[in-house]
Simulated assay, not measured.
Amino acid sequence: MKPGDSTIPKFYGLPKVHKEGVPLRPIIAFRSSPTYNLARDLAKRLRPLVESSERMLSNSTDFVERLRGVNLGEDDCLVSFDVKAMFTSLPQGLIRQAAMSTVESSPEFLDKSKLTAKELMGLVDLCLDSTFFKFRDKIYHQKVGTPMVSPISVVLAEIAMQRYEEEVLKDAPPSLKLWVRYVDNVFVIMKKEEVEPFFERLNTKNEANQFEMEKEENGRLPFLDVMVTRSGSTLTTGVYRKDIHTDRLRDYGSCHPATHKRTHKPKNTLHRALTKIKDTVSQADRMGVVYDIGCKDCETHYVGETSKKLATRLLEHQRAVGRRDMSSAILRHTEETGHEMDWQNAEVKYGDPYRPVIRAKYHSRRFETAVLGIGERNRDSKQQEYHSKCFSESN
Results as ranks from 00 to 15, higher is better:
39 A>Q: 06
274 L>W: 09
320 A>I: 04
341 M>K: 01
125 D>T: 09
211 F>D: 00
136 R>M: 14
15 P>F: 12
44 K>T: 14
39 A>P: 08
378 N>D: 14
142 Q>T: 09
128 L>Q: 06
385 E>G: 12
173 P>T: 01
250 R>G: 08
81 F>K: 01
320 A>R: 13
392 S>P: 07
6 S>G: 06
125 D>R: 08
260 H>Y: 15
82 D>E: 05
364 S>D: 07
71 N>H: 11
192 K>L: 10
11 F>V: 06
373 G>N: 02
319 R>E: 13
376 E>Y: 12
147 P>L: 05
123 L>Q: 10
381 S>I: 13
277 I>D: 12
245 H>Y: 14
394 S>N: 15
130 S>L: 09
45 R>V: 13
42 L>H: 04
130 S>A: 12
89 S>T: 06
298 C>E: 07
384 Q>F: 14
83 V>D: 02
231 S>K: 14
189 I>L: 06
67 L>W: 06
49 L>M: 01
171 D>G: 07
62 D>T: 00
266 P>F: 07
286 R>T: 00
238 G>F: 03
83 V>S: 02
195 V>D: 07
366 R>P: 00
28 I>P: 06
170 K>P: 01
160 A>V: 04
337 T>P: 10
324 R>W: 06
52 S>N: 15
310 L>H: 00
339 H>Y: 09
64 V>N: 01
161 M>T: 01
238 G>P: 07
293 I>L: 14
269 T>V: 06
252 Y>I: 08
283 Q>T: 08
365 R>F: 13
123 L>K: 11
391 F>K: 02
176 L>S: 02
14 L>D: 00
243 D>G: 07
352 D>R: 08
172 A>P: 08
33 S>H: 10
73 G>E: 14
293 I>Y: 05
175 S>D: 10
124 V>T: 01
168 V>E: 01
305 E>F: 04
49 L>P: 02
304 G>Y: 04
368 E>C: 05
32 S>A: 15
325 D>Y: 03
144 V>W: 13
134 K>E: 13
211 F>S: 00
